[in-house]
Amino acid sequence: MAEAPPRRLGLGPPPGDAPRAELVALTAVQSEQGEAGGGGSPRRLGLLGSPLPPGAPLPGPGSGSGSACGQRSSAAHKRYRRLQNWVYNVLERPRGWAFVYHVFIFLLVFSCLVLSVLSTIQEHQELANECLLILEFVMIVVFGLEYIVRVWSAGCCCRYRGWQGRFRFARKPFCVIDFIVFVASVAVIAAGTQGNIFATSALRSMRFLQILRMVRMDRRGGTWKLLGSVVYAHSKELITAWYIGFLVLIFASFLVYLAEKDANSDFSSYADSLWWGTITLTTIGYGDKTPHTWLGRVLAAGFALLGISFFALPAGILGSGFALKVQEQHRQKHFEKRRMPAANLIQAAWRLYSTDMSRAYLTATWYYYDSILPSFRELALLFEHVQRARNGGLRPLEVRRAPVPDGAPSRYPPVATCHRPGSTSFCPGESSRMGIKDRIRMGSSQRRTGPSKQHLAPPTMPTSPSSEQVGEATSPTKVQKSWSFNDRTRFRASLRLKPRTSAEDAPSEEVA
Rank of each mutant, 00 (worst) to 15 (best):
A2V: 09
A2G: 07
E3A: 10
E3D: 07
E3V: 08
E3Q: 05
P5L: 12
P5R: 11
P6L: 04
R7L: 13
R7P: 04
L9F: 05
L9P: 04
L9I: 13
G10R: 09
G10A: 06
L11R: 09
G12S: 08
G12C: 03
P13T: 04
P13R: 03
P15L: 05
P15T: 15
D17N: 10
D17Y: 03
A18T: 04
A18D: 04
P19A: 10
A21P: 14
E22K: 06
E22A: 05
A25G: 14
L26P: 04
L26F: 06
T27P: 04
A28G: 04
A28S: 05
A28P: 11
Q30L: 06
Q30K: 11
S31C: 12
Q33H: 05
A36G: 09
A36T: 08
A36V: 15
G38E: 04
G38W: 03
G40A: 13
S41Y: 08
S41A: 08
P42A: 04
P42T: 12
R44P: 04
L45P: 07
L45R: 12
G46A: 11
G46V: 13
G49R: 09
G49C: 08
G49V: 03
S50N: 06
P51H: 06
P51R: 11
P51A: 09
L52Q: 09
L52M: 14
P54S: 14
G55A: 13
G55D: 15
P57A: 15
P61Q: 04
G62D: 13
S63C: 15
S65P: 12
G66V: 14
G66A: 08
S67Y: 06
A68D: 12
C69S: 11
C69W: 05
G70R: 10
G70V: 05
Q71P: 15
R72H: 05
R72P: 07
S73F: 12
S74P: 13
A75T: 14
K78Q: 11
R79G: 14
Y80S: 12
R81P: 13
R82G: 11
R82L: 03
L83Q: 03
Q84K: 02
Q84L: 02
Q84R: 10
N85H: 15
W86S: 06
V87F: 12
Y88C: 02
N89T: 15
L91Q: 02
E92D: 05
E92A: 01
R93L: 15
R95H: 14
R95P: 02
R95G: 04
G96S: 13
W97G: 07
A98P: 06
F99V: 09
V100L: 04
V100A: 10
H102R: 03
I105M: 05
F106I: 04
L107W: 03
L107V: 05
L108V: 07
V109A: 02
V109G: 02
V109L: 05
S111N: 04
S111G: 04
C112W: 00
C112F: 03
C112S: 04
L113P: 08
V114M: 03
V114G: 06
L115M: 13
S116T: 10
S116C: 05
V117E: 02
S119T: 04
Q122H: 06
Q122P: 10
Q122R: 09
E123V: 11
Q125R: 11
L127P: 06
N129T: 09
L132R: 12
L132V: 14
I134L: 11
L135M: 10
E136V: 03
E136G: 15
V138L: 13
M139T: 09
I140V: 08
I140N: 03
I140T: 05
V141A: 10
V141M: 13
V142F: 13
V142G: 13
F143L: 12
F143C: 05
G144R: 00
E146G: 00
E146V: 00
E146D: 08
Y147N: 03
I148F: 13
R150L: 12
V151L: 11
W152S: 01
S153C: 09
S153T: 02
A154T: 02
G155E: 02
C156G: 15
C157R: 09
C157S: 15
R159L: 15
Y160F: 03
R161P: 02
G162A: 05
Q164P: 07
G165R: 01
G165A: 02
G165D: 00
G165C: 00
R166H: 07
F167V: 13
F167Y: 10
F167C: 10
R168S: 12
R168C: 15
F169C: 01
A170S: 11
K172Q: 08
F174Y: 12
F174S: 10
C175G: 15
C175R: 08
V176A: 13
V176D: 00
I177S: 14
I177V: 09
I177F: 12
D178A: 08
D178E: 15
D178N: 01
F179C: 05
I180S: 06
I180M: 07
V181M: 09
F182Y: 07
F182I: 07
A184G: 10
S185T: 10
S185W: 02
A187T: 05
I189M: 10
I189L: 02
A190V: 12
A191E: 11
A191S: 11
G192S: 04
Q194P: 03
G195A: 06
G195S: 12
G195C: 07
I197V: 07
F198I: 03
F198C: 01
F198S: 01
F198Y: 04
F198V: 10
A199T: 08
A199P: 01
T200K: 06
S201F: 06
A202G: 04
L203R: 02
L203Q: 04
L203M: 05
S205T: 14
R207C: 01
F208C: 07
F208V: 11
L209R: 02
L209M: 15
Q210R: 02
L212R: 02
M214L: 15
M214T: 07
R216S: 05
M217V: 04
M217R: 01
D218G: 04
D218V: 03
R219H: 03
G222C: 02
W224R: 00
K225R: 12
L226R: 00
G228D: 02
S229L: 08
V230G: 00
V231I: 13
Y232S: 04
A233S: 05
A233P: 01
H234Y: 02
H234D: 01
K236T: 04
K236R: 13
K236E: 13
E237A: 00
E237D: 01
E237K: 01
I239F: 04
T240P: 03
A241P: 00
A241S: 12
I244V: 02
I244F: 04
G245E: 05
F246Y: 00
L247V: 15
L247M: 15
V248G: 02
L249R: 01
F251V: 01
F251C: 09
A252T: 04
F254I: 02
F254L: 03
L255V: 11
V256D: 00
Y257F: 05
L258Q: 06
A259D: 00
K261N: 06
A263G: 04
N264D: 03
S265A: 14
D266N: 10
F267Y: 01
F267L: 01
S268F: 02
S269Y: 01
S269C: 07
Y270F: 07
A271P: 02
D272E: 09
D272N: 03
S273T: 02
S273L: 01
L274I: 03
L274V: 01
W275G: 00
W275R: 00
W276R: 01
G277E: 00
I279L: 01
I279N: 00
T280K: 01
L281F: 04
T283A: 01
T283I: 00
I284M: 00
I284N: 01
I284T: 00
I284S: 01
I284F: 00
G287D: 00
K289T: 09
T290P: 00
P291A: 00
P291T: 00
H292Q: 08
H292Y: 06
T293K: 00
T293A: 00
W294C: 11
W294G: 03
R297S: 01
R297K: 15
R297M: 03
V298G: 02
A300S: 08
A300V: 02
A300T: 08
A301T: 05
A301V: 15
G302S: 15
G302A: 10
F303L: 02
A304S: 03
L305F: 11
G307R: 00
S309P: 13
F310L: 06
F310C: 02
F311V: 03
A312G: 04
A312P: 12
L313R: 01
L313V: 06
G316R: 00
G316C: 00
I317M: 01
G319V: 01
G319A: 03
G319S: 15
S320A: 00
G321V: 00
G321R: 00
F322I: 00
F322C: 01
F322Y: 00
A323T: 01
L324P: 01
K325E: 15
V326F: 06
V326G: 07
V326I: 15
Q327E: 13
E328V: 02
Q329H: 01
H330Y: 03
K333Q: 02
K333R: 07
H334D: 01
F335V: 01
E336V: 00
E336D: 00
E336K: 01
K337N: 00
R339M: 14
R339W: 02
P341T: 08
A342G: 03
A343P: 01
A343V: 11
N344K: 07
L345F: 06
I346N: 01
I346T: 00
Q347L: 13
Q347K: 10
